[in-house]
Amino acid sequence: MTILGDNLTTSPLGFGGMALTPVYGAVDPTDALATLHHAVDAGITFIDTANVYGGGSNEELVGKLLADRRDEVTLATKFGITGNPAAGQRSSRGDREYVLQCADESLARLGTDVIDLYYLHRLDPNTPIEETVGAMAELVAAGKVIHLGLSEVTADELRRAVAVHPIAAVQSEWSIWSRDVERNVVPAAAELGVGFVPYSPLGRGFLTGTIDSNALGDNDIRRHFPRFADGSLDANQAAVEVIKGVAEAVGATPAQVSLAWLRQKGTELGLGVVPIPGTRKRERIDENIASSAVTLDDAQVATLDSIAATVTGARSADAKWVSAGRE
Results as ranks from 00 to 15, higher is better:
275 P>D: 09
276 I>C: 09
297 D>S: 12
297 D>C: 12
287 E>A: 06
292 S>G: 12
278 G>S: 07
265 K>S: 11
296 L>K: 00
274 V>C: 00
277 P>M: 11
287 E>W: 02
263 R>L: 10
270 G>H: 14
263 R>H: 13
296 L>T: 04
271 L>N: 03
274 V>L: 08
270 G>A: 08
271 L>R: 01
265 K>T: 14
280 R>V: 07
298 D>Y: 09
292 S>A: 15
278 G>D: 00
289 I>A: 01
284 R>W: 12
285 I>K: 00
294 V>P: 00
289 I>S: 04
265 K>N: 11
293 A>K: 15
291 S>H: 09
267 T>I: 14
285 I>Y: 03
282 R>P: 06
281 K>A: 15
275 P>S: 09
298 D>N: 11
298 D>K: 10
271 L>K: 00
274 V>N: 01
293 A>M: 13
290 A>Q: 06
262 L>I: 14
273 V>G: 00
287 E>Q: 09
292 S>W: 13
266 G>W: 07
269 L>W: 03
272 G>P: 00
275 P>W: 05
273 V>A: 07
272 G>F: 03
262 L>E: 08
270 G>P: 02
275 P>E: 04
279 T>H: 04
277 P>I: 08
285 I>G: 00
284 R>F: 13
291 S>Y: 09
275 P>M: 06
265 K>R: 15
295 T>Y: 07
294 V>Q: 00
262 L>R: 01
286 D>E: 15
287 E>S: 10
276 I>A: 08
276 I>L: 11
296 L>Y: 04
270 G>Y: 13
275 P>K: 09
285 I>T: 05
274 V>E: 01
286 D>R: 14
262 L>Y: 05
287 E>L: 06
291 S>P: 05
271 L>A: 06
294 V>C: 02
275 P>A: 06
287 E>F: 07
288 N>W: 04
283 E>S: 13
265 K>V: 09
263 R>T: 15
272 G>Q: 01
265 K>D: 10
265 K>Q: 15
286 D>Q: 12
277 P>T: 06
270 G>K: 06
282 R>I: 11
273 V>H: 03
298 D>V: 12
297 D>Y: 07
276 I>Y: 00
294 V>T: 06
267 T>C: 04
279 T>R: 02
279 T>V: 05
281 K>Q: 15
269 L>A: 11
282 R>E: 13
270 G>M: 05
286 D>N: 11
291 S>T: 13
281 K>W: 12
265 K>Y: 10
274 V>M: 04
266 G>V: 01
266 G>E: 02
285 I>N: 09
285 I>W: 02
287 E>K: 04
262 L>M: 14
277 P>H: 08
284 R>D: 08
274 V>F: 02
